[in-house]
Write a protein that binds this DNA or RNA. Structure first.
Lengths: 350, 350
DNA sequence: TTGAAAGCGCTAACAG
DNA sequence: CTGTTAGCGCTTTCAA
């Protein structure tokens, strides 16, 4: 029926989402006016603005960010790489990141990448390709490829959770080494001599490694023996009970166990329960992270409080500041403190 | 030194990321060849391909998805709306979604939106604007605006976790009503007569509401009294202990408490501990969701197993199938089962 | 205050 | 097999 008016191409909206051109036609104005009505309404006459607004409502128009991003060379998208999503520590961290993003009108990609931070670049590349303007990585970045990528693409890159003195890349987080020292010293002060450490996924994990180093160093300082066990949490069929039992009941049994993550402590606690070993009368137990449930266990768990959400927020805000105001990223060290609860006591009288 | 060869505009890469044009210049080929070398390498001569690959490596080139997306009208981005991120139930769900996305080469936005599913459209709009091609919503969608948006934009929209017979929008998930009936009946069979239900964030939450309905209906069937408490988990300062104490110790004390979420059960358990009330001797306790820690508590928690990760995977896969092959979305109902553990026993002999 | 038109990075005809 | 070019949806000069 109606013939094309200008020299314009498309006729109608057959099936796709309405574009700015559809909107302009519907409102009987130019696309430039539509754009202005949407982005700088004050610069457009009331009449025009109303027409556009009415058409937006009627057509259910939503600006396509991809067109906009291409033009403005900005996406307001930031990507986060973390070990896994279904783990309270990381999801609390991610929640912190997202709260900062939302406040600033950004949206976030999340990508679980497993425990090995030596293979990050592939995932980072995908995010960059998909428009991410900055990348937040949980933990230390151990992938030189990612640094190369960063250099070529010049995007803000920040490492969060672990603080490392003199890190190449800006990092905000805690010092796992000294936090662990605090914990070990606490046990020593209580009179413990035979102290074990339970770790998980140690390979290529700077957090676990720093904690192990601290434990080893303090024990060495005092000339005390080291009992280090690596528990594989990723395979549920590998039951850690026998190894724990050896630690808890054998000839060489220990009076305290440092669990390098709260979840490890949860498992250990349930094994103790099963074996009839009392906590803290027979053995003292500590965690690391202060997850929500640490205080709800029986007995409540002594652990290290880590402000994971705050760290995530800080990282995200820094990346945003860099993107918006060009403010350079900087490292920041968060303090930790030990939360002393009933899972820790004096060693049993022999 | 060197003058522009063709009629091309940009000279070098002053500060931004390298584009396909930079790459083409560097490799001494046309942008079309670069594109082909990257996307359909087999259709390009070995010589050209190698040149391009070398330049990619040297320049650290990463395809800009925004250009590509604009051209192909595809982004391979899917958005997920869920109540919060820092809660095991939702993060397990999100992990399921993301595992399916990764497998298919998609990336995911995640947006925490709080408990009220009547205000979803704003968040969905942001995601659509940012290129999301489909939206997954945790729980029932109670926002007519979102349906309007969906109609205008024609994107795949799916509700996950709650299954509702005859839902307008496709939904994959569990039937909260019948799952709860199972749980209540279990307690009745054990001889419990005074059974309370603890709920949280009931307003505009279809899951809690369905569970409450089931509880009410079964109790009514048996002519038994209803004790319903709404606990506000979002404000930590509002201590629920006094109300729980009344439920647990008063004249009208109950012999069993149904907690509508595992986290509620955790809290209740710790209150019991504090009050010296034994579980299950004095009171039986149940949860709902089967979070990772339910089995680690003391006593281990009786709860309802919900395949949250699998539900997330299903929802994501459906959206992808729709996008890739046009396969229409369909609803799917997952079975649940009660996991009977030591937190439940017979009522105390009066 | 409004419109016309260029161009962001990329892919897919179409020519050669 | 390779290059030229149009155009995806949008913003932003530049003119009117």
């Amino acid at each position: 029926m109606d013939k094309p008016r200008k020299t314009q191409k498309k006729e109608t909206v057959p099936n796709g989402r309405p574009t700015i051109l559809d909107l302009a036609r519907h409102a009987g104005v130019s696309i430039a006016t539509v754009s202005r009505a949407l982005n700088t309404p004050d610069v457009v006459s009331d009449d025009m603005r109303r027409k556009v607004e009415a058409s937006v409502a009627e057509l259910g128009y939503v600006t396509s960010s991809v067109g906009k991003a291409l033009r403005k060379q900005r996406t307001r998208v930031i990507g986060t790489l973390l070990p896994q999503l279904d783990n309270p520590l990381f999801s609390v961290f991610a929640a912190g990141v997202h709260s900062a993003l939302s406040e600033a009108g950004y949206v976030g990609f999340i990508q679980p990448v497993g425990w090995d931070n030596r293979q990050l670049s592939k995932h980072a590349r995908t995010m960059i390709a998909n428009g991410a303007e900055g990348i937040i990585v949980f933990g230390r970045i151990d992938d030189p490829d990612l640094f190369r990528l960063q250099k070529a693409q010049k995007f803000p890159l920040i490492s969060a959770y672990s603080y490392h003195e003199g890190s190449d890349v800006p990092c905000v987080g805690i010092d796992n080494y000294s936090a662990t020292k605090l914990l070990v010293n606490l046990l020593l002060q209580l009179g413990h001599k035979r102290i074990a450490m339970l770790s998980a996924n140690m390979i290529a994990n700077d957090r676990q490694q720093s904690r192990i180093d601290a434990y080893r160093d303090v024990m060495a300082e005092h000339g005390l023996p080291v009992f280090l066990e690596d528990i594989d949490l990723s395979s549920p069929e590998a039951d850690p009970s026998p190894r724990l039992e050896k630690l808890l009941k054998g000839e060489n049994r220990v009076s305290a166990i440092l669990c390098n993550r709260d979840v490890l402590a949860y498992r250990t606690l349930s094994v103790c329960m099963k074996l009839g070993i009392r906590v803290p009368e027979d053995v003292s137990l500590t965690g690391f992270d202060e997850l929500e449930y640490a205080s709800l266990l029986y007995p409540p768990l002594t652990t290290v409080a880590v402000p994971a959400a705050e760290i995530g927020r800080n990282a995200a805000r820094q990346v945003i500041s860099y993107l918006e105001e060009g403010r350079p990223l900087s490292s920041y060290r968060y303090d930790t403190h030990v939360i002393l609860r009933q899972s820790v006591g004096a060693p049993p009288a022999t």
